[in-house]
Design a protein around this nucleic acid. Structure first.
Length: 197
DNA sequence: GCGCTGATTGTCT
DNA sequence: GACAATCAGCGCA
């Protein structure tokens, strides 16, 4: 267990263009503090959503609603979304009034692993966080985190290890969203076993 | 208010 | 490989 929590990344870090930030986030630590303890993991897979152009995004065509409101805010904000029985977590990127975000698809457990096992009820380490819905449950991320900032606890991102090599490719699970399906906006750490599918 | 949809996962065939 | 789970958000009446 770590007593000293790592310092969060500065707000400036998130000011990068969405596609660059999606790559920079790989290898960073995603940390969630709760009354039960702290759980964290290295981000190993991300996916970019560029609202104005992207038919797969909730904010396609600059659609501004209660749900997507947060994506029009500043970079570094937390956008959580409930999908079926699971919660997904995004990092808002780009500048204000431009609805772009990065979905965190997978992390590699780093600290608080016993807590994650307890939350997921699984003995298999790899299956704890190898998917967007799974990692939120393992880390204890909920809709309560919606609207917060990744620059401060209880949910934030800290510098980690830079991956040796990363790959990019088409996104997954967005069905037929026209041209958007083929955009290579999914990034992952080469060869990492925690990457989904 | 009412019905439809979905950025996923787990289970069954 | 196919399908149900489960609920908030959205569009429309």
């Amino acid at each position: 267990m770590i007593n000293d929590l790592p310092a969060p990344l500065p707000e400036e870090f998130f000011q990068l263009p969405t596609l660059e930030l999606a790559q920079e986030l790989l290898g960073c630590l995603l940390i969630k503090t709760t009354p039960e303890g702290t759980a964290s993991g290295y981000i190993v897979e991300t996916e970019a959503y560029k609202g104005p152009l992207d038919r797969a995004a909730h904010s396609f065509g600059n659609r501004r609603t209660k749900r997507t409101e947060i994506m029009f805010g500043k970079a570094g904000l937390i956008y959580t979304y409930k999908m079926h029985t699971h919660t997904l977590v995004n990092v808002v990127s780009s500048v204000e009034d431009v609805p772009e975000a990065i979905l965190i698809r997978a992390v590699e457990p780093f600290s608080g692993i016993p807590l994650m096992h307890e939350r997921r009820g699984l003995p298999d380490l790899v299956k704890l966080t190898s998917g967007p819905g799974k990692l939120t449950k393992a880390l204890g991320i909920t809709m309560n985190d919606y609207g917060g900032s990744f620059t401060e606890p209880p949910l934030y991102i800290a510098p980690g290890n830079k991956p040796e090599s990363i790959q990019c490719g088409p996104r997954i699970g967005i069905g037929n969203s026209g041209e958007a399906v083929a955009y290579p906006w999914r990034y992952w750490v080469t060869g990492n076993p925690f990457v989904s599918r």
